[in-house]
Write a protein that binds this DNA or RNA. Structure first.
Lengths: 331, 331
DNA sequence: AATTTTTAATTAATCGTTTAACTTACTATT
DNA sequence: AATAGTAAGTTAAACGATTAATTAAAAATT
């Protein structure tokens, strides 16, 4: 069973490969190829089950009609959902998506970028790992179309689709305060990324404004030992002299681990302690009552990121926009 | 900033592109290229930040060193985890993975296969959608390396990595019976796929063996309207004359929806009703007590699927194995 | 000194497509 | 009858990399 190329179709019909290419790409304008031959070619292609070789096409055309999506971990439901929407939208625009996982490692991210570039992706959508600003800078330098999503670098002039982390966390905290939860804690990752810092800042500023802030309200857990750290932090909070009334979890994975740790100790959510989660997770969906959470517009993030990227790719100019989409406070 | 190709490196050093290719691919055995020139070439490649064009390489070599992974929905954590492991293992073998979502639609699956083939993937790993046996057959006919995972077609002679669905469900049901839950229900999807039928059969046979089976113990929900159907089914079960003592959920998404629906009605899991879940989900991880579930060896499935695929690709012969891995009953 | 062997490269074809430029045979116009 | 115009193709180079076959010079062997 030989591979079916343009040449094979051409030979079978006694025409040149060029003619076949013209017809199959709909470029037989102003009398390039006769109606009759066009039909023959189209029929023969279907008969032989012709599949165009996009490696050859990409090589010739200088673009691959594919984009790279780099996330931390595709098994995390936030990234999975983002990927799903990006793929769906990309497909409708004629692009394929190749996904890479960094596992939050800089070295891994570097490897993936090389890999994707060698595969000639036309552009990249990245949720950058901590400390990857120089790497991002180097992508900008080779003028490869690029959009950051979810996380950005304020100092870098690069297209980004972000959310209003500070403001939404400020509002969420304020709401807790207004509802009477005076002594709250905030649990975030032990890292130094702009977007998570902003979330923390939202919490801190709201507490300060109400003159309720003390530094020990902010706790950190590490990505690698999430469950253990969480158990430690939660038990610290529970045996505090001044009773903790609410806990603000800074990400979806933290929310999950946090709620789990609370339940393990027999703490009743909303009765003993109120929680505020970032992202809608199964953890809070299961309760027979509403648990307040911050909902990110994931689908819109995906769409905007792709729009910005395709604009860069097709207009060939790197115009940088930073978009701040609005997250929603659901309670 | 011109693109850096082999030719560019060659020109800068006054040698031919062939020499550069030889060196950069480590093929300068038995005195093809001098040590001196080798070093120069390697240094220059690094200096110019050379990135090989894998479209060109793939075109020439006849393989792309990439594989296609087709799943139902990458935002589903089961598929996300599968994808993560497949990617990790593929990477260590020098392959890229391109993921496609079928959304359980046959037409979509057909489109994706065409797409991936045009991108010259060297092989495919597929979780086939319902009714896709003919489509799978057509892939076999063009002798494209192929491995099915999670779901298989018993009548098709195709490499597959599956689990012992019947046996593990039989055992799980038997365990429920042994623990005293005499009147159980089984909730699965309204579809006709071999792997889910096997799960149902496991339940039914175990109940029959204990002379506890009645046909109305088996309920069905549809994928498209899961939550509504689940609420309907659960309320049916709750107002049954004969009290339902345990519910067996046939997949991870069903488990999630089922537990949620029960909690919404104030039913206490394990106190009022025992549950048995397929897959470990957040739904059951959150309880402060152990909820029994069936654990699939996802990482091993990923590894075996890739092993079988790469074997096919590299040995060029399509030797079909059907692997049945063992799921584990955790309680 | 003549011949063989080894070393260090180069040449040229090829993978499958695309497309600008060209050709050839008709038809229409003056 | 000579010229222009159109219809329906073909030719050939190019994209970037690989590799079998070849070449040319230097070193080793007789």
């Amino acid at each position: 069973m030989k591979k079916v190329s343009l040449k094979v179709i051409a030979r079978e019909l006694g025409v040149s490969a060029a003619t076949v290419s013209l017809v199959l790409n709909g470029k037989n304008k102003n009398g390039r190829v006769s109606e009759e031959m066009s039909k023959k070619i189209i029929d023969k292609a279907a008969e032989l089950n012709y599949i165009p070789n996009s490696l050859a096409k990409g090589l010739k055309m200088g673009h691959s009609k594919s984009i790279g999506l780099i996330v931390a971990d595709i098994s995390n439901v936030f990234f999975g959902t983002l990927a799903l929407h990006i793929q769906n939208y990309a497909e409708s625009e004629g692009y394929t998506v190749i996904i890479g996982n960094t596992n939050e490692k800089l070295a891994q991210m570097e490897k993936i970028i090389f890999f994707l570039n060698s595969r000639q992706v036309d552009g990249l959508i990245i949720t950058p790992a901590e400390g990857s600003d120089e790497l991002i800078q180097s992508i900008l330098e080779i003028k490869k179309p690029l959009v950051l999503v979810d996380r950005g670098f304020p100092d870098l002039d690069v297209s980004s689709v972000l959310i209003n982390n500070y403001e939404i966390c400020f509002r969420a905290t304020k709401q807790l305060i207004d509802q009477g939860y005076k002594n709250s804690a905030f649990i975030g990752y032990k890292q130094n990324q702009f977007h998570t810092n902003e979330r923390k800042r939202g919490f801190v500023e709201a507490m300060k404004e109400a003159a309720l802030f003390t530094p020990d309200q902010v706790k950190e857990v590490s990505y690698q030992s999430l469950e253990e750290d969480m158990d430690e932090v939660i038990s610290q909070l529970l045996k505090c002299a001044q009773k903790v009334e609410a806990i603000f979890f800074a990400t979806n994975t933290i929310s999950m681990a946090g709620v789990k740790s609370l339940l393990k100790r027999g703490v009743l959510i909303q009765k003993d302690i109120q929680v505020m989660c970032f992202d809608e997770t199964d953890a809070i969906n299961l309760f027979p009552f509403r648990v307040p959470f911050i909902k990110q517009p994931i689908e819109e993030m995906a769409r905007k990121a792709l729009e910005l990227l395709i604009e860069q790719i097709e207009k060939k100019e790197v115009k940088n926009h930073k978009l701040f989409l609005e997250a929603e406070l659901i309670s």
